[in-house]
Each structure stands twice: as structure tokens, then as C-alpha cells.
Design a protein around this nucleic acid. Structure first.
Lengths: 266, 266
DNA sequence: GAGGCGAATTGGTCGGATCACTTGTACGCG
DNA sequence: CGCGTACAAGTGATCCGACCAATTCGCCTC
């Protein structure tokens, strides 16, 4: 280090064992890999092999940079990347920690799909939901307990209340309540991974775009009908009915979206 | 040397309108948001509202930093984050570009779930696959053309060939071929989003972990049977049979995984 | 006109300095 | 003694300026 100029011939890393510090030697697999990427891989390794466990605190950025033999700038980029992935969490002034590594943590990035996708991809997203939601709803019908059903009923009531008052806010509230309703159902399945994926596929942004321009009378009513049917099937603990009701609901949304896309494009 | 100390009292950003360059004014929504995060949001906005389209080239890092009023370091971290999300792509010496924004680009991050997850989450992942793969396989059965079926047959043959030679490499090859087989099926559905999600849920790492310790005789044979059944259903263009065969296959994998986890933990 | 050489462009890495937030500790007041 | 405040150390966040490395493109040569 110090004054890098002069004598570019004396390659400092010629011998792997000639390290002059706690710098980890470059492994063969790292050949040609950018420095920052290497740092990312190293941290992921430590997590995958159990050296770093959920909730653990990492060494300081300065230490990590020194350990891995990279500059602090590169180390910070690596941390930023892993933070974006939901693997690490940086707390200003406190340190960098490994997240709980729950599916919700790792799949938060999912929502960007709904944020930036357009046209055909939006329909594909709905096709996936058409596969997931019926199965999830059927599973929920078999597992729901009384408290969970009660909560669903309350959400439905709230949606009805909003439907009565016509206004700009009521629209946003309806979107929000619809989201909550479906999320609550998926949560009943007890599968956090499924819940996280479904969240990503049904983000607020996505729904807002699907429903833009579809506020004419009748939509709200039909929506409520769909939800009512799903709710009844869950109360009856009838998986088949629940599956069918969920399928119809997603199909309906897909129909609206297709109409919307046709209007926009052609 | 240098020491830029002096006069830390004169707050330079006292008045919002006193910008001395092309620096975009801080919007109300950015209050309290870290600088880098703000930069990330700005870029995402430009993509969401169409200012930046897939394939477009962004201004240089130095320009962007200047435009958004942040240092190049922070700008680079923002770009790193968006690169990690699969939204941007940096080419050394050439520039930063918006990716095609295809589902495969945006869902590449999905694989970290399979990389770092453990125990219960792995089972949850399989439960999701149990919802997706049957539906996908059924859809594929209805849509497959002759060329696609021929390709599937070739993959199956390759797996059979590997099964004959017992060796360490044959194991890796089988994992690889199994992956290819299922990916090929999902691709037949024509739904790129579905394919990307399934890829993430069935990553090489994941499969390798599921199968670790399950190499006893009979497994390979049973696997081949499963695949054979799925293949026959697809050839017969029988969605119901395809769905059932896929379901049984995933159930079988889930059974192995549960046994594996029980061995490890209890 | 084709091919190669070299400068300009642009992302990648580095090291240092400073700012801002958190945490733990010691001091002082009640 | 107990509690709260103030201070100080630790640590991430931001900024700056420089240099390295890959790419691009224009100019020159043949």
C-alpha cells in the first residue's frame, strides 16, 4: 500500500503465502472476478456455511475491508448489494447485521417486478397468481381457525363501508383493503415463503395500475361479490369451493387487465 | 497536509432555492431519506415513468452524481443497488444501461432465498413448487409442440445415460439434468415470469442440498420413473395426468427433504 | 478500404477526511 | 442511591480526488 506509483513490475501478489496482513488469499475461483463481487461472495459464504447466523453483527466496514483485502469503498458497495438483497441490514452508528433471513426479508426485492414491468409481463404475473392463489385459498380453507375467520370478516366489512362513500380516497382504501384481504388469506396457510411471493405479485403499485381506468360502477360490487364468495367458502372449510372462488376472482382481474392493455396499446 | 477544516458553521444548504448548479432540488418526500436511497428512487422513477426505457444508456456516473447532487461514491452505491436488483447493468468502460427488464432479469435475486435459507423455509419453498409445478406442467401439456417434446425426450435420455455410470460426476450431472428437464417444461408454458420464479425456487444450490445424503440406490430409479410419467402425460397432451404426475414428483422430493431435516435436527 | 494503433471516454478501485447517528459511560443533580 | 443529562468513543454515511482498467472511436498507416 502507500504510494502505489513506481515499480509496476514487482507484482505484490505473486506468492499466495506472501500476504503482509490479515488479507485472505485470492482463491482460484475468484480469478477475473471484480473485487467488489468477490467481497459479496465471501460474505454470502460466511452466511451459507453458518459462520454468520441470522441476527449476528458483522465486523465494522473498516475491518471487513481490511480482512477481505479491498478498499472501504468497495466493501461498502458489497454491503449495499447484500443490503439490497435483504441479507444484511446496516444501522447507522450501530453496525451491520445479518437479517433474520426470513422469506419476507429476502423476497422484498420481488416488488420491483411489479413496479417496472409493463404489458405482457403484467399478464404473466396474473397467470402465476392464478396458479398460486387458488391453491393457497384452498389450503387456507382447510386450516383457518375462528379467530382468523373473524379477522377476515372485519376486513370485508371495512371494504363494504368504503364502498358506500364515493370519493378519491375510497378508491385507494379499496385497493388497500383488497390487498389486506388476500394477504390475510395467504397468511392463514402458515407458509411465509408463499406469503412473501404473493405479496410481491400483488403489490400496491401493481394493483393500482390494474385498476386504473376501471372505476366505473359495477366493478366494486363485483369485487365484493368475489370476496364474499371466497369468505363463505373459507367459513365452510370447503377447499374446493375456495379454490374455485379464488380462481374466478383472479380470472376476473385478468380480464380487466387485458381490456386495459388493449385500450392502451391497440 | 491540506487539512480542509475551517468554518464548519456556515451551513451551505440553508435555503432550498440557493442551488448553485444543475442539482435537482430536494423534494418534500425525500425528507430524512439517506442520500443514496434518494438517488435510487430517482432512477427508479425515471424508469417507471418511461424517461428511461429498456436498453437505454444512462449518463455517466459522474454526470448522474452531479445531476442528483450526490457524490460519485453515493451514486455508485445507488447504481450498485439497482444493478443487484437486475434493473441496471454496468459495462466496464462502456457505460450503464437499463436491462431489458424481463422477468428473468428482475427475478435473478430470487436465488438467494434458496442459497441462504434453512430448515422450515426449504419446506415452504417446496410447498410453493407444489402449487406451481402441477399447474405449469398441465399448461405445458396443453401447449407443447412436437419439437419441444423431442427436446424433453433428449434430456430424459441424457439422464438415463448418466444413471448408468456410477460416479461423483454422474451425481452432479443428474442434478443438472433434472433442473434442465423441469425448466424446459416450464418454458413450454410460454410464461417467462413463471419460468423465472420457478428457476429461483429450484436453483442448483437448493437441489444439491435436498439431495445431499439421498444417494442410496432406488432414488435415481424413482426419479426417472417420475420424469417418465410426466413426459408421457405431456406427449399424450393430457393436462390432468400431467398435473397429477408433477404433484407426485414434488411430493416425493418434499418427503426426502423432510426426512433429511429430521435426520439433521432431531 | 482494411487493419491496427492510440487517445478519449467511462466504469472500477483506492485511500483519506469528515459528517451524523448510536451507544455506553461518567458526571452531577435531586 | 437513583436517574437523567452530557460527553466521548465507535461506526456507518457521505464526500473528495486520484488512479487503474476496459471499451470505444478516430486517425494513421499500409
Amino acid at each position: 500500500m502507500t504510494i502505489p506509483d513506481a515499480a509496476p513490475d514487482a507484482t505484490p501478489d505473486s506468492a499466495p503465502g506472501a500476504g503482509s496482513g490479515p488479507v485472505a488469499p485470492t482463491e482460484p475461483a475468484d480469478r477475473g472476478m471484480p473485487v467488489t463481487q468477490r467481497a459479496i461472495e465471501r460474505i454470502k459464504e460466511r452466511i451459507a456455511d453458518g459462520t454468520l447466523k441470522p441476527g449476528d453483527r458483522l465486523p465494522t466496514e473498516r475491518e471487513l475491508a481490511s480482512d477481505l483485502g479491498v478498499s472501504r469503498s468497495s466493501m461498502r458497495e458489497a454491503i449495499r448489494a447484500l443490503t439490497t438483497l435483504g441479507v444484511l441490514e446496516a444501522r447507522h452508528g450501530a453496525g451491520v447485521y445479518v437479517t433474520a433471513l426470513r422469506p419476507a426479508d429476502l423476497l422484498e426485492t420481488f416488488s420491483v417486478l411489479a413496479e417496472v414491468s409493463q404489458g405482457e409481463t403484467l399478464i404473466e404475473v396474473l397467470q402465476v397468481r392464478r396458479m398460486l392463489e387458488p391453491a393457497a385459498t384452498a389450503l387456507a380453507a382447510a386450516r383457518a381457525d375462528d379467530a382468523q375467520l373473524r379477522r377476515l370478516g372485519e376486513i370485508l366489512n371495512r371494504m363494504d363501508a368504503d364502498g358506500g362513500s364515493a370519493g378519491a380516497d375510497a378508491y385507494a382504501d379499496t385497493v388497500s383493503a383488497d390487498l389486506t384481504f388476500h394477504q390475510a388469506i395467504v397468511e392463514i396457510t402458515g407458509n411465509a415463503t408463499l406469503a412473501a411471493i404473493n405479496d410481491g405479485l400483488s403489490s400496491r403499485t401493481f394493483n393500482a395500475r390494474v385498476w386504473r381506468g376501471h372505476r366505473e360502477a359495477g366493478i366494486t360490487a363485483r369485487l365484493r361479490e368475489d370476496h364474499e364468495r371466497i369468505y363463505r367458502a373459507l367459513r365452510a372449510r370447503d377447499p374446493d369451493a375456495a379454490r374455485a372462488a379464488a380462481t374466478m376472482h383472479v380470472l376476473e382481474v385478468e380480464r380487466w387487465l387485458r381490456a386495459d392493455l388493449t385500450d392502451d396499446v391497440g
